[in-house]
């Protein structure tokens, strides 16, 4: 055993990623499926981890074990994990990643939950973390992984290398940069239950969660986004104009900082650095702009521009899309 470890240290161990798979109401989050795709690109084994309450975990495991790209699926259930809190989940991850851990990478979506947990665990293990990556490349010979990520609100691309001196490389994944992993074709992964690590008297207690009810896709992962700015005038016209268009397109609704600040739209809809995803719009495949001002800067980046009053154009667009 000892010999094998010395050998592997010299040879650089082949990558083995641990992917933190998040779920809500029995379904895997699609952002986690993008994280799984990124983990698969490391070119080694991929183990999934499902953590949750005893009621939720079995049905999530049923779905997760069929995911393409997973070799092993670990799951851990405890009433303490009913709400995922960093203070209670971190000790489980720390245990999994210490003492002869086979894992070389820890991967998750750049979700509010995972980005609260991963850096906490990384710090405990004395390793850095890389946030919100848009691409990666693993060099098996040297054991180093190179990532790209956006900095300065998407105005620059940074290429960073985590060398083999970082034994476990933590990173979160920008979901729009990786397709979601599918399920079905591959052999089912090996499923193993883990004992929970109970935290007595946790310092943080969950009081309540209130989710904004919406049938529309989540802004962070939506394939299409309809976004409005200050020109929408007020909250009522914002909704009455944009929501039908979003529904006709099966799109999420976004809002500019100005629209959010003016109270037309909820903060959670904000597109841009301080909102949902950093300068996300600039990475879109197709940008369509409707603006009354022919000199509006958006026309410099839009693939299709229409100079017109949105209050006339958008309803017409909705009608014609329905045909």
């Amino acid at each position: 055993m000892l010999k094998a470890r010395v050998f592997s240290a010299k040879q650089a161990a082949s990558p083995h990623a641990l992917v933190f798979l998040e779920h809500r109401q029995g379904d895997l989050d699609s952002a986690s499926l993008s994280a799984l795709t990124a983990a698969s690109q490391l070119g080694g084994q991929v183990t999934g981890l499902v953590v949750g309450s005893p009621e939720e975990v079995p049905s999530v495991v049923e779905k997760a074990k069929k995911l393409n790209g997973l070799t092993t699926l670990l799951h851990c259930a405890s009433p303490q994990y009913t709400t995922i809190l960093p203070e209670t989940v971190s000790p489980l991850l720390e245990k999994l990643l210490s003492q002869n851990s086979p894992f070389t990478h820890v991967v998750s979506a750049h979700s509010s939950s995972a980005k609260s947990i991963l850096p906490r665990v990384a710090a405990k293990l004395d390793v850095p973390a890389v946030s919100d990556i848009t691409s990666l490349e693993h060099d098996a010979a040297s054991g180093s992984t190179t990532f790209t990520r956006l900095i300065y609100a998407g105005n620059a691309i940074s290429t960073v290398r985590a060398s083999s001196s970082i034994p476990i490389k933590f990173f979160t994944v920008r979901s729009t940069a990786f397709a979601a992993a599918g399920a079905g074709d591959a052999a089912e992964s090996e499923v193993k239950a883990l004992d929970s690590v109970e935290v007595s008297d946790p310092p943080t207690e969950h009081i309540s969660t209130s989710l904004t009810k919406s049938d529309r896709p989540d802004l962070g992962v939506a394939g299409r986004v309809v976004s409005g700015g200050r020109a929408l005038k007020n909250a009522e016209t914002f909704q009455s104009t944009l929501y039908p268009l979003a529904d006709a397109l099966g799109a999420a609704v976004g809002a500019s900082r100005a629209a959010v600040d003016a109270g037309y739209a909820d903060n959670s809809l904000q597109v841009g650095q301080t909102g949902k995803h950093l300068a996300g719009m600039k990475d879109s495949k197709l940008i369509v702009a409707v603006n009354k001002d022919p000199d509006a800067p958006i026309f410099q980046v839009a693939d299709v521009g229409l100079v017109a009053d949105l209050f006339e154009v958008v309803p017409e667009l909705v009608e014609k899309l329905k045909q």
Binding site: V130, T159, V160, Q300, V304, G305
Partner: peptide, 18 residues
Amino acid sequence: RLETIKVTEPPKRVGGGK
């Protein structure tokens, strides 16, 4: 602990006309 290899400009988008 991480090595910054390079920092580059993101690709520029060009508008597709009206």
